[in-house]
Design a protein around this nucleic acid. Structure first.
Lengths: 138, 138
DNA sequence: TGCCCACCTTGGATCCGGTCCAAGGTGGGC
DNA sequence: GCCCACCTTGGACCGGATCCAAGGTGGGCA
């Protein structure tokens, strides 16, 4: 966990209380929080932290490759701290819950050259949608 | 093309000038237009059509299964009139252009039961991201 | 140890896609 | 041709995200 902070320091991040708190919130439990949820949890520890700073910091973590942005619907983006193991997402269409999943095989292999239209493809996102057990029984 | 209008009439759609124009815009060339683009094209034929009506009509077409909603990024949703042949999307990360593609195999088969966490999975979306030829050369 | 400035934070304004609403208009069944 | 259930309208509103100018501060350097 201070691994993350060390990596960030090593990349020239000026370490401030705000950034530390945001990084720790994400690194704490591996959930898929929205920016507002991150802000709420950060504010629990550092009451005066602003939304703008949370957005800035999340954006930096994303561009450093430490965190992934996941927007599975029109609601708020979610931030996925599990950036270092490739995975896909399983999303509940009702409550929006997200689980990381690890399908077998390489989805990119399924796309023949003739269907690539000259694009330089850099990644593939697979989103499985359905209803989670909680919403099914409710 | 009047196939679409006939299907809609058959489902009890009250046919108004506005709805006809929106349906025709989508059915015309098989592109992936945003709601605003649909509005602009519709307004070219029916100047006083409102944005609200375009949104309403698009929403109805989606819930009738005649059109698919595609939101590949945080920008505006796009509407895909090609709802009757299953396909996936190839998206340019730079300009946002979308192409329909038809990968081989069933992506759902790649997800083992142990990774389904009790979800009732209803569909799978695959989005290939990359840079299109136009943006590569530019 | 202390200074200083480049970088960071702040909150309020602003943007943008989308939705809501109440009032007025109209398709199409009778 | 009438009438009303349904449709359209535009303007207000919403929520997530971003921008901005003003003030604060980490940490390199002396």
């Amino acid at each position: 966990m201070s691994d993350l902070l060390n990596r960030l320091r090593g990349r020239g991040w000026r370490m401030t209380a705000q950034r530390r708190v945001v990084a720790e919130v994400l690194d704490g439990d591996h959930m898929h929080l929205t920016a507002d949820e991150v802000h709420a949890r950060a504010a629990a520890r550092l009451p005066e932290i602003s939304r703008a700073t949370v957005y800035n910091t999340l954006g930096e973590l994303v561009s450093l490759g430490e965190v992934l942005e996941v927007s599975t619907d029109r609601r708020a983006k979610r931030y996925d701290p599990n950036a270092h193991r490739p995975h896909q997402h399983l999303v509940c269409a009702q409550c929006g819950a997200i689980r990381d999943v690890h399908p077998s095989g390489d989805p990119l292999a399924a796309l023949p050259d003739a269907e690539r239209f000259g694009f330089t493809i850099s990644n593939v996102e697979v989103t499985y949608r359905g209803i989670c057990p909680d919403c099914t029984s409710a």
